[in-house]
Amino acid sequence: MMQLPLILVVDDDPTNFEVIETFLEDQDYRLYYVNSGEAAIATLDHFEPDLILLDVMMPGLDGIEACRRIKAIPVGATIPVIMVTALSEKRDFARCFSAGANDFISKPINSIELLSRVRSMLLLREQYKQLQVFNSRLEATVQARTAQLQTLSVKLLEAQETERRFLAHELHDEIGQALTAIKISLRRLERWVTSPQASEPLEDCLTLVDGTLQQVRNISLDLRPSMLDDLGLVPTLRWYINRHAKRTGLHETLTCEALLQRLPTVTETACFRIVQEALTNIARHAQAQVVSVTLMQANHTLHLTIQDDGIGFDQNSLSRAQGTSLGILGMEERGMLIGGQLSIVSAPGQGTRIALQVPLAAPV
């Protein structure tokens, strides 16, 4: 059953409350009376009225100051306040509104005016309550949809890694072995063919097969290095950073403290992909000379940092429509999906620092 609207009447003169009670007795309202501003503020600790009728001229804490303090309280900020006053100067009305009052009624109180103002403010209060309910439902819906999207994102990344693992295996085992067999056959053919005219085409074919075989191996390793599953994150990062440094000419170092335990597979994969994406962006855009990667564990938190001495960028003007920002978005999403937080600090001419913190479960 819906409760009737509750009106808090604040006036140091009980006679004024009786007048208000008489004017509103035929209405479906509940009235509660206190005789001071201090009592009105204390009342909000026990229940939340739907409307406050607040006398301005009261001894001690006057109505204007009481209104200001009520509006400063979270529960009071949304309660409509009608000031009841015998004052008639415009500056007095301005003081009431500046204190947070929503409306005012002049004394002596007119019953029609009182009913009109009360109904208007209670309607405002009801609309606010409905808006709160709508916002709560909307927030719950957004949270549910966000959780669903995060679940789908995790499944998508897992599916991508599974597909990468499969493609890497196929490239290494099937195509790689086929190219190796072709190379062996060409070598045998080279020994059998004595014509000088055939030796040059054969050598070209062998060179092409060697190059293709190396490309297949590189693609396979970039898709999903098997050592990530077999040996873990640290050996894989050490191998990848050395390999990337040789390919790009960058001076890249890995500083790693011994981890207390083998990390979850999803965490290892996310950290590896973040380093992979960061080093790719550095090689393409940063014009850096030195890159340092640091991995450490402290207070049940994994800390991963990638720092370069490149040209940096203006974070305020970076548009997510640019290619580099898509890479940043991907790194942020990977960090978020493992419960971590990724931050990027950069400025023109000052390089870029990418830092990831991931909470870890305490070792059993």
Rank of each mutant, 00 (worst) to 15 (best):
D314I: 05
Q297M: 06
C67H: 10
L250M: 11
L31T: 00
Y29V: 06
M57A: 07
L329N: 07
R119N: 09
I328H: 09
L44P: 05
T267Y: 01
T265C: 02
D309K: 05
Y32G: 00
N135V: 07
Q322I: 13
D230A: 11
V10F: 08
N242E: 10
F93L: 14
V56Y: 01
I182Q: 06
I73Y: 14
H251E: 09
F166C: 04
L114V: 13
A77Q: 05
P235L: 12
V345E: 15
A258F: 03
M227Q: 06
E65F: 02
A288W: 15
N35Y: 15
L149I: 06
I182M: 13
T294M: 07
A39K: 13
Q322C: 10
Q177A: 11
Q261C: 00
T162H: 13
T207G: 03
S136E: 14
A198C: 07
Q160F: 03
P235I: 14
D62S: 03
A42G: 05
L157G: 00
T162G: 13
R164P: 00
L87H: 11
L260R: 14
S195N: 12
T15R: 09
T43S: 12
R243I: 03
D92K: 00
Y32P: 00
A168N: 07
S136K: 10
S136R: 11
L24N: 03
M58A: 05
L131E: 15
V84N: 08
G76S: 09
C271S: 12
G340H: 04
L156A: 11
E139D: 13
T265K: 09
D230K: 08
Q357R: 04
V84W: 12
F272D: 05
Q197W: 15
Q287T: 02
Q287A: 09
S220K: 02
H285S: 06
S185E: 12
Q27R: 14
A286L: 11
D13I: 09
M336H: 12
W239T: 05
A140T: 08
D204G: 04
P14V: 00
R117F: 15
D103A: 14
H300C: 15
L337Q: 08
I82G: 03
R125F: 13
N35H: 14
I311S: 03
A94L: 12
N102Y: 15
R137L: 11
S185F: 08
L326Q: 15
R125I: 11
E170Y: 15
P59Y: 06
G351K: 02
L156K: 10
M336E: 08
Q261P: 00
R30M: 14
H46G: 10
S120H: 05
R238G: 03
E268S: 12
S136H: 10
I241H: 09
E139H: 06
E257I: 00
T78C: 10
E65T: 07
G63N: 07
I7M: 04
D28H: 02
